[in-house]
Amino acid sequence: MEERILEVKDLHVSFHTYAGEVKAVRGVNFHVKRGEAVAIVGESGCGKSVTAQTLMKLIPMPPGEIKKGEILFNGVNLVNKSNKEMESIRGKDIGMIFQDPMTSLNPTLTIGNQIMEGLIKHQNMSRSDARNRAIELLTLVGIPQPEKRVDQYPHEFSGGMRQRAMIAIALACSPQLLIADEPTTALDVTIQAQILDLMKELQKKMNTSIILITHDLGVVAEMCDRVIVMYAGKVIETGTVDDIFYNPQHPYTKGLLRSVPRLDLNRDEPLTPIFGTPPDLLRPPVGCGFTARCESAMRVCQEYDPELNDISSTQRAACWLQHPLAQNRAGS
């Protein structure tokens, strides 16, 4: 039986600003199975990072607020948890890697110290045990001379090394779920590949589930089992990697794939971007958020927001074109 380690149901997150309420996440549903790697993709400002940080309740509250919904982690709803209770889950059961390794490490503490903190807090280790474990972890993430490196400061590490150290911090207590928020965006391409390989390898070794947030579809193809495509604070398509790459259903997903450079196409041909910008989530549109940029938009798209419809047993898309009734009509 497949075990759902995380299930997010109808999650709504808003930020209260001077201009009004920004509805950053508007009813997101998804799940993650044990040992699975799931990607959340979408352009900037579509709610990926907010969703991820809400899972650990790391968004600042206020101005942020979880308006509605459930986050079931091993069947326990995290939304109702107090900050104290969340502290014993963060770092222990759920680890997180951030985008920019240059700013995500504290410049005044040694790398070892920063890895040890979580171990001492969650596993009641003594300082010397934690130090030995930190050296093991540094070896695990492929940092040479870990005995020496453990006492060094972040400024003595390169960008890729720092991201490795971040992974060591996130994995210190062997969490069941690892959330990686654009872990490779700030790194150059060769380092990106190394970090991805490392994450894949560690995932197999530790049987951790991964939620990978990215806007790099190449990273998705390399790492993940399933893909969740987000747009304007909603999930608009989900499916396996093969579903999404070979049989995309939602016009937005198709657009995303078209805008990726490909090796087999003529290099002189310009890329096809998706024109326009995402809607303002201060005043989200009534209908489908993608209407204004969609080539196949119909009148119904402006007035009613489509639900996620089953395409196959693994794939779902939220588009009126894939609505059962539309399919029937096209067929008749």
Binding site: M56, L58, K84, M86, E87, S88, I89, R90, G91, K92, G95, M96, F98, D100, T103, S104, L105, N106, P107, Q114, E117, G118, K121, H122, M166, I169, A170
Partner: peptide
């Protein structure tokens, strides 16, 4: 700063 978020993600309490 980001490293404060990292510290929070480690499960440290506000005082620490």
């Amino acid at each position: 700063q980001d490293y404060i978020k990292t510290a929070k993600a480690k499960g440290l309490n506000t005082v620490t």
